[in-house]
Design a protein around this nucleic acid. Structure first.
Length: 794
DNA sequence: ATAGGGTTAG
């Protein structure tokens, strides 16, 4: 029998052997990385449990440290080991708290453990503990908890440790409290490079250029890191030249130095410079990573240079960084905004965890290339829609003239409680303009005022345009005068709008004001000015403005300007001069130019020229309905039914269908549509009766229908009845029923108002004492007391 | 006796 002391002794020997073996062979620092799998780890762990070696705090420390640093060991495993340890030392506590923060991203657990740590036996927080805890506070962005930790630091006497002080500084800086951060900095007995970088980084993050410059200028050594920070803050505050200067002065530029400058250019809309620098960076053999590549791609997107973008994409693939989400997003944005929707779609479909911007840029990409349905499908399948998604979709509808859908979506957006941004507002107002939905337009305007939304140039101009095109000149002027900043487009909307509403003198006056204000007129402005002259037949003024374009403003007239002049001259009866002007044009006259001349021939009954021009036009654009109709009208007015039939034949041959006249009228927020001869309206009986009343009253006023323009070879009575069912007459009858005076009856027509309807509207305005506003495809007619604002010239 | 901690930037 062995005595117990011998057993004890041999056990001790065994233990020490084991300890040495295991300690040296497995737990030694240099051999630790050899543990490569959970199996190997389990072997070590079970050996230690079996031998009781686990109770050795030093060995346990190594083990815990190993486990928390190995990705193949789940964190809860480490936690279990921690829980069976009897007396974890400070090192173990620190390790497990750090692991909670870094691996679990649960800083609150670390802070909770700290409380247990404080009351545990045989272990005390040390100077390593506090940087961890302070990082936890940063992760929770809790300055309050940070202050508490700061108190402990001071009480326990660790506040002279430079690591602790640097972390404290960082905490205050991240929480935006630069005063406290600066206090810690200023009161530090020892400052190392990290201290300087930290305080500098704080100012950079706050966007405090002065603070950053102050720190930078006083640094004992302006490291690359610090210079990089300066490039960043100069870039963010628009000081591009200074950023460049700092960059040039860096002795040893690293990847971030280059990258920061690329991004500085990119953020300041200097996309060419950004790309040049990116190329330069490559030429200098600097490594690139996903961040700088994203900047470069974004520059390509802004410049719409798809080729460079694709080259960079290839570079990214070669570098092996193509899987980064930020890069995927940037590429999707690039491809979708450059019209390569298929490439974008592929990336999008393969993409994983793509951000909101990708969804939005796919939607705008689809819309850009006209795939509205795809955009719509994507829009409705999005997990989350933000204002940008809604705005993109609404403006897409508006751009493709799907105005009622734009308005409907705007309403839907309201129901979802999304506050519209300026883009959405602009789109919906423009939709209102086209739908003549004045009520909604006014509502949107009120919404803008109520919510104090800044009316920028675009929004203001859109509002002016809307009011002008709805015939509300006063409201338009009000918007105009209230605008702080005005652009060319603003003046243009005003000039064109006034002219359109018959206020020619005022329109030309505004043009003079515009010149006085120093805003340079452009091609559109002259469309408005010449248009104004045209509306009133101001031939001399028109000639003057036309020649002033080249002489005074250095603007070459385009086809449209010529067309306008031809129209002006032609209408005034200067047919010969008009035709000569066409022949003198430096560019090929377009269909509209000839069309203007044809219209003039019709008006001045120059049938010889009319037929010549008409035939030419039909050849030029065989599928245009208007010219056939005009020409056929010329024949019809002469009773030349044979030629009328021939034109009809040509029309049938080319499948030309006369665009049906269509008038819209808004009543109580609902837009009603009437087609010529269309009697499908639910209130058709009332309308029918009202038409009879109108006919009665007009007869008293001495009205006789102008049937000569009806080019149908039918008898007079039928002609009269067809004439009396023109869409604008149906609309006005409906308006007389449903809109109570003194509200004007507002009608919008797709074609130009015909002569007969114009007469009828004047008579109605007198006989019923109503104000009627008709907007045809050209301009406005304000009927009041039997006369029209166009003075019968249109 | 011993291991471990902090900052910044595109």
């Amino acid at each position: 029998m062995y005595s117990s002391s011998i057993i004890k002794k041999s056990c001790l020997n065994l233990k020490s052997t084991l300890r040495q073996t295991i300690n040296l062979s497995i737990l030694d620092t240099h051999l630790l990385p050899q543990c490569q799998s959970i199996n190997q780890f389990n072997q070590i762990l079970s050996q230690m449990l079996l031998t009781g070696f686990i109770k050795d705090t030093f060995a346990a420390s190594r083990l815990i440290n190993l486990s928390t640093h190995s990705t193949f060991i789940p964190f809860h495993y480490s936690l279990q080991i921690f829980n069976i340890l009897h007396n974890p030392n400070g090192f173990i506590w620190n390790t497990i708290m750090r692991s909670h923060l870094e691996r679990q991203n649960s800083p609150h657990h670390s802070l909770y453990l700290y409380r247990l740590f404080l009351v545990s036996c045989n272990a005390f927080p040390d100077n390593y503990t506090y940087p961890i805890l302070l990082r936890c506070c940063v992760a929770r962005s809790s300055e309050f908890e940070g202050r508490e930790i700061h108190c402990h630091v001071v009480k326990l006497g660790f506040d002279l440790d430079v690591y602790v002080r640097n972390t404290l500084m960082n905490l205050y800086a991240v929480c935006g409290n630069m005063v406290s951060a600066r206090k810690v900095f200023d009161e530090s007995p020892v400052l190392d490079s990290v201290s300087w970088n930290t305080i500098l980084g704080g100012y950079v993050q706050m966007g405090d250029v002065k603070g950053a410059e102050f720190v930078y200028s006083r640094m004992p050594e302006q490291s690359t890191i610090a210079s990089n920070s300066m490039i960043v803050i100069f870039g963010r505050t628009g000081c591009v030249a200074r950023a460049r200067q700092v960059f040039d002065e860096i002795q040893r530029k690293d990847m971030v130095s280059w990258s920061a400058l690329v991004s500085c250019y990119e953020q300041n809309d200097m996309y060419e410079e950004a790309l040049v620098l990116f190329v330069d960076m490559n030429a200098n053999g600097i490594m690139v990573d996903e961040v700088v590549v994203v900047s470069a791609i974004s520059a390509c997107t802004h410049l719409s240079i798809i080729k460079a973008g694709m080259t960079i994409h290839a570079l990214a693939v070669k570098t092996g960084i193509e899987a980064y989400v930020s890069l995927q997003n940037a590429l999707i944005h690039l491809y979708s905004s450059c019209g390569r929707i298929m490439d974008a779609q592929k990336l999008f479909n393969d993409g994983f965890l793509l951000d909101q911007i990708s969804w939005n840029s796919m939607i705008s990409g689809y819309l850009r290339c006209g795939s509205i349905e795809d955009a719509k499908t994507l829009f409705y399948s999005m997990p989350e829609k933000d204002v940008v998604s809604w705005s993109a979709m609404i403006s897409g509808y508006a751009q493709y003239e799907r105005f009622s859908e734009a308005v409907a979506l705007f309403h839907e957006m309201q129901l979802h409680g999304i506050r519209p941004d300026v883009t959405a507002l602009v789109s919906v107002i423009s939709a209102c303009t086209h739908l003549a939905a004045l009520d909604l337009g006014k509502w949107v305007h009120a919404y803008i005022s109520k919510n104090k939304i800044q009316v920028n140039i675009i929004l203001g101009t859109t509002l002016i345009d809307m009011y002008m095109k709805c015939g509300c000149v006063e409201n338009a002027l009000e918007v105009f005068y209230a605008m702080e900043q005005k652009g060319v487009s603003t003046w243009n909307a005003l000039i064109i709008g006034l002219a359109m509403n018959g206020l020619i003198e005022k329109s030309l006056h505004m043009f003079a004001d515009m010149k006085k204000s120093g805003t340079l007129p452009n091609e559109i402005t002259f469309m408005g000015v010449l248009g104004a002259c045209r509306h009133m037949g101001l031939v001399d003024e028109g000639r003057h403005y036309f020649s002033s374009m080249t002489v005074e403003h250095k603007i070459e007239p385009n086809v449209k300007h010529y067309g306008c002049m031809v129209d002006l001259l032609g209408r005034a009866g200067f047919l010969k001069e008009a035709e000569e002007l066409i022949e003198s044009m430096p560019m090929a006259p377009d269909v509209a130019t000839w069309g203007a001349l044809l219209g003039a021939c019709r008006k001045h009954q120059n049938n010889e020229m009319g037929e010549r021009v008409g035939r030419k036009l039909i050849q030029l654009q065989p599928d245009h309905d208007g010219f056939h109709v005009l020409l056929s009208n010329i024949y019809a007015s002469k009773g030349n039914w044979g030629d009328v039939l021939e034109i009809r034949g040509i029309m049938a041959q080319h499948g030309v269908v006369k665009t049906p006249g269509c008038s819209m009228i808004e009543a109580n927020g609902v837009v009603h549509e009437f087609l010529a001869g269309d009697m499908t309206h639910p209130q058709k009986n009332d309308i029918e009766r009202m038409l009879d009343v109108v006919a009665e009253k007009l007869k008293i006023e001495g009205y006789a229908p102008t049937t000569s323009e009806v080019s149908l070879d039918i008898d007079e009575e039928e002609k009269e009845s067809a004439l009396f069912r023109h869409s604008e007459k149906l609309a006005v009858a409906f308006g007389l029923i449903i809109i109570a005076p003194p509200t004007p009856i507002r009608i919008m027509k797709n074609l130009r108002i015909c002569n007969d309807c114009h007469i009828v509207m004047k008579l109605i305005s007198k006989a019923f004492d109503r104000e009627i506003v008709v907007r045809d495809r050209h301009r406005f007619h304000h009927f009041k007391h039997g006369s029209c604002s166009c003075m019968d010239f249109w």
